[in-house]
Amino acid sequence: MSIGIIGSGALGSNLARALARKGISATISNSRGPESLASLIQEFGPSIKAGTVQEAAGADIVIAAIRWTDVEKVFSRLPAWNGRIVVDATNPVEFLDPNSADAKDPSNPLAAYGIKAVDLGDKQSSEVFSQFVPGARVVKAFNHNDVAALSNPDVAGGRHVLFYSGDDAAAKAEVRKLIEGTGFFPVDLGSLEVGGRLATLPFGALAAHNFIKI
């Protein structure tokens, strides 16, 4: 299956590195265009190519590696998904300007980390995300840990654990293969309603825990 990555920040670039280490082909994109990715592509090697957002979005498996605040703007402009797989690697947080009042808000327990949680009411984030990719089969993955964990699957004599969840068994099986193919240890958390809540930053019970399979 072809793979597209939308977003070339810390998450998108580290995902591309993880794929490149195993020689897995993918197209990475950002809002600035393929030319802005020239130095990264040189680093990644021949298995990763730069493309437009539209080109990356045409893959069989598309990974959303962008900030939550950009999700609607980016994905609402893309064509029909027609049953293709979209991996929701986002987390419902807003990054704060360090000089803003929000960054100094004593009522925000995450202010020290430069973020604040986005209020989604009683919805889990992939439920909201799915509204912007109608017709896609959404799987939640690659979001629950620090992106640095993607730099190397092997650690302390074992492998980093990556959680995934979703409501479509076939889509989950493809994402599991992708996780295994990059050398990580996949753990299925069940449906989006259950697994999404457990593994979504900042307040998911399993979020930010660096589990290792020995």
Rank of each mutant, 00 (worst) to 15 (best):
Ile28Ala: 08
Ile28Arg: 02
Ile28Val: 13
Ser29Ala: 14
Ser29Leu: 03
Ser29Gln: 09
Ser29Met: 02
Asn30Ile: 05
Asn30Gly: 07
Ser31Phe: 08
Ser31His: 12
Ser31Gly: 05
Ser31Cys: 04
Arg32Trp: 06
Arg32Ile: 07
Arg32Lys: 10
Arg32Asp: 13
Arg32Ser: 11
Gly33Glu: 06
Gly33Pro: 05
Gly33Met: 04
Gly33Val: 01
Gly33Thr: 00
Gly33Ser: 06
Pro34Glu: 15
Pro34Ile: 11
Pro34Val: 11
Pro34Asp: 14
Glu35Ala: 00
Glu35Ser: 02
Glu35Trp: 00
Glu35Cys: 00
Glu35Asp: 15
Glu35Arg: 00
Glu35His: 01
Ser36Thr: 15
Ser36Phe: 10
Ser36Cys: 09
Leu37Ala: 09
Leu37Lys: 02
Ala38Cys: 08
Ala38Glu: 15
Ala38Leu: 07
Ser39Thr: 14
Ser39Met: 13
Ser39Asp: 15
Ser39Ile: 12
Leu40Arg: 01
Leu40His: 07
Ile41Glu: 13
Ile41Lys: 13
Gln42Ile: 07
Gln42Lys: 14
Gln42Tyr: 10
Glu43Val: 00
Glu43His: 00
Glu43Leu: 00
Glu43Cys: 00
Phe44Asp: 04
Gly45Tyr: 10
Gly45Pro: 15
Pro46Lys: 15
Pro46Phe: 08
Pro46Asn: 09
Pro46Gly: 05
Ser47Leu: 11
Ile48Ser: 01
Ile48His: 01
Lys49Glu: 13
Lys49Val: 15
Lys49Gly: 02
Ala50Phe: 04
Ala50Ile: 01
Ala50Cys: 04
Ala50Arg: 05
Ala50Met: 11
Gly51Ala: 03
Val53Asp: 06
Gln54Phe: 13
Glu55Leu: 06
Glu55Arg: 04
Glu55Pro: 12
Ala56Tyr: 12
Ala56Asp: 02
Ala56Met: 08
Ala57Asp: 03
Ala57Lys: 03
Ala59Ser: 15
Ala59Met: 05
Ala59Gln: 12
Asp60Pro: 02
Asp60Gly: 09
Ile61Asn: 09
Ile61Asp: 09
Val62Pro: 09
Val62Ala: 08
Val62Lys: 09
Val62Glu: 02
Ile63Pro: 03
Ile63Ser: 03
Ile63Ala: 08
Ile63His: 01
Ile63Glu: 03
Ala64Ser: 10
Ala64Gly: 04
Ala65Gly: 08
Ala65Gln: 10
Ala65Cys: 13
Ala65Trp: 08
Ala65Glu: 09
Ala65Tyr: 09
Ile66Thr: 10
Ile66Gly: 02
Ile66Asn: 01
Ile66Tyr: 04
Arg67Pro: 14
Arg67Lys: 10
Trp68Met: 08
Trp68Leu: 12
Thr69Asp: 06
Thr69Trp: 04
Asp70Ile: 12
Asp70Trp: 11
Asp70Thr: 09
Val71Tyr: 03
Val71Thr: 03
Val71Arg: 05
Glu72Asp: 10
Glu72Val: 02
Glu72Met: 02
Glu72Pro: 00
Lys73His: 10
Lys73Met: 12
